[in-house]
Simulated scan of single mutants.
Amino acid sequence: MNQMARLTSSPGKCCFKASLDREATFCDECGSPIQRCMATDECGGLLDAAGCCPVCVAPELSLDAGSASSIKVGGSLALPLLVSNNSPVGRPLFVEELWIKGDDSEPRQVDLTFQRLNSESTAEVGLRTGVFETAGLHRFDVHIVVATRYLWREERYVFTTAIAIPVDPEGPSEIVQNYNIQADEIGAGMTIYNPTRIQKEREAGIATHAEPIRLTMRRADTLERSLGHRGYTGNLAVTKYTDLIWQGFDPGHAPLDGPIRTQTGVLGLGRASNAPEGGMNDVRLLITHDGEIDEEASVHISRRHFHLFIENDRLLLRVESQNGLLLNDTPWRRGKMIALKDGDVIRPLVSRPNAIALKVLFETQHDEVDRIILKRLVDFAGDRP
């Protein structure tokens, strides 16, 4: 099990210093594994314990209190929401979805007029609450789905926050309501949004709420999986710290067992020699018999045939060969990306599918894949007649 090798907290200054060595995989000072952001060449960031780069992924939600008005039973409210990208290094953020959920209502997706949000920029969104049927404190949850991209890769995350809105009863006379609220009653990070008080203070010239009210957000890993943005169906996840175990390879043709440790977080597999030998690959794919290379058969494997990497808590394959490959019995052409699952068989040669194969086996603990065995098979017929 590789739990001991995983980060227990965010990387420290010593980890960033160690990461300046492009070959470093562990911090010499604290011993933590170094997991670089996929865009580390642009951001210089390292992943935190949850597998997120806080330099690239820095969304902020705020309520623009200046446009608030009082709300009574029978009325509705448009919450003026500001969405900001606080990345300090110029990395854009892509807002994919925004959802709002009332007390007992179903989540409702909000129409967005934008997607790309450049660093240090802000966009406005109006969240309409619907009609308030009763007086009291009404809770709304807001979920935002954001993505960070680099070349052909993308990581998605879901953040959530909660807003409580006091709604006054109907009637000609003003009623002052006092709310005695315990933190465990409303949930950590909830913002109490009192539009009546804000409007009165604004009319009185009080500038207390002239600035936006920043909302406290947290990662919503359960939503990330249930909405299908991260992990597999069935609540199964492959983290950046999952061990890859290489079986059936000739000596020197596969990396050491363990998490992906390359600078980019991507493994290249193909006929060409490996990087330590001055080549372009991390895993060498050749057809061999008793240690002897079958040159005539191996020449049909492309120099770089495909990539393997972990994205959105899934093990992905990207086809690089002009001739494509087979996953099980399904052909995939160059540039296609496929999420690999337990039991899949990668067949690099479409014209000779039994010549060489790579079988993928997941070993799981609870809802995480603890180890992935990648077994090289030569002259593999599998389930074929």
Rank of each mutant, 00 (worst) to 15 (best):
P33E: 05
F249D: 06
K375E: 14
L223E: 04
S9N: 10
E295W: 13
N85Y: 05
I213N: 06
R334T: 12
D344Y: 03
D28W: 11
C14R: 06
T40H: 13
D379V: 00
L340Y: 05
L256N: 13
A355N: 11
A68K: 02
I356S: 10
F362Q: 04
P172R: 15
P255R: 07
S70M: 04
P88E: 09
V283G: 03
N180Y: 03
E29R: 06
V131D: 03
L46E: 03
L47D: 13
A355W: 15
R149N: 10
P172L: 12
D111E: 15
V89K: 15
Q263L: 10
E170W: 10
L236I: 03
S226P: 00
G189F: 02
N235K: 00
T242F: 04
E203S: 04
R202M: 11
L308H: 12
L267S: 12
T330H: 07
N2H: 04
F132D: 04
S87M: 04
R139F: 04
G75M: 04
S69G: 03
A339I: 14
H289A: 08
F380N: 07
G51C: 06
F140A: 05
L374M: 14
E124N: 14
A18Y: 12
R334C: 11
L47K: 09
T242S: 12
K359P: 00
E211L: 11
R218G: 15
A183P: 15
V83S: 13
D168A: 14
G51K: 00
R314H: 09
G234M: 00
T148M: 00
S321T: 13
N323W: 03
N328G: 02
H366M: 00
A123E: 10
F380T: 02
S32R: 09
P169L: 13
I100N: 02
R304C: 04
S62V: 00
L7T: 13
L285E: 13
R219F: 14
C27H: 01
V125Y: 10
R149G: 02
G90W: 02
I100K: 09
E185R: 04
R318E: 14
A39R: 13
P80I: 08
E97D: 07
I260E: 08
K200I: 09
E170P: 11
D221W: 00
S351W: 01
R284K: 08
D250R: 10
L316P: 01
I213R: 11
L127Y: 01
I293L: 13
D257R: 13
